[in-house]
């Protein structure tokens, strides 16, 4: 019985997590020099360069891999989009609403209405990835503010961007394909 118990205690002791505590010198045990050392580190940080960007004055130019708000590519005055609706289908947050219609152009089909609800958009870039026409891409724009829910719904007027302005991203997409 007693044997059992002692074995048990042994076992329990073996199971205890091993914590390595550093043996402190008596000078270190005094702590105050350590605190002063810590304060020295803290104080030296005060004179290090700052990371903060003075935002409205100092703007950031994102790299091509940045996923800003999705925009429609406009080429020769018309959108590349053929209103296939794949972006709308793949959109995990149901932000995209497309209504197709017929056009005389050789592409046959065009979006008579193309709306992205920027309040729903989560900037995942799935729409860009799924687009068979390279017609919707993520831009570098990230400054989006509205005062009404309705303002958050971007129609074709706000979404269409000439292809020249999107060169960075289009090149990046081709490189990464």
């Amino acid at each position: 019985m007693t044997n059992d118990k002692s074995q048990m205690t042994n076992y329990m002791e073996n199971q205890k997590p091993i914590v390595h505590r550093k043996d402190l010198h008596w000078w270190e045990m005094f702590y105050i020099p350590q605190i002063i050392g810590g304060m020295k580190i803290t104080l030296t940080q005060v004179f290090r360069p700052k990371f903060t960007r003075q935002y409205p004055e100092e703007k950031w130019n994102p790299p091509p891999s940045f996923r800003g708000r999705p925009v429609l590519v406009e080429q020769n005055g018309v959108e590349r989009c053929v209103a296939c609706g794949l972006c709308s289908r793949v959109c995990p947050s149901l932000a995209i609403d497309v209504q197709a219609s017929e056009t005389e152009l050789s592409k046959e089909r065009y979006p008579v209405k193309f709306e992205i609800n920027m309040l729903r958009c989560i900037f995942c870039g799935f729409c860009e990835e799924v687009c068979p026409e390279e017609a919707i891409v993520m831009s570098k724009e990230f400054e989006l503010t509205f005062t009404h829910q309705a303002d958050g719904i971007f129609g074709k007027d706000k979404l269409l961007i000439p292809v020249e302005k999107l060169k960075d991203r289009l090149e990046f997409l081709r490189k990464m394909r």
Binding site: R89, A100, S101
Partner: peptide, 9 residues
């Protein structure tokens, strides 16, 4: 029905 809607919608 031409181009009116996608069937999955």
């Amino acid at each position: 029905f031409r181009f009116k809607a996608r069937v999955w919608d």
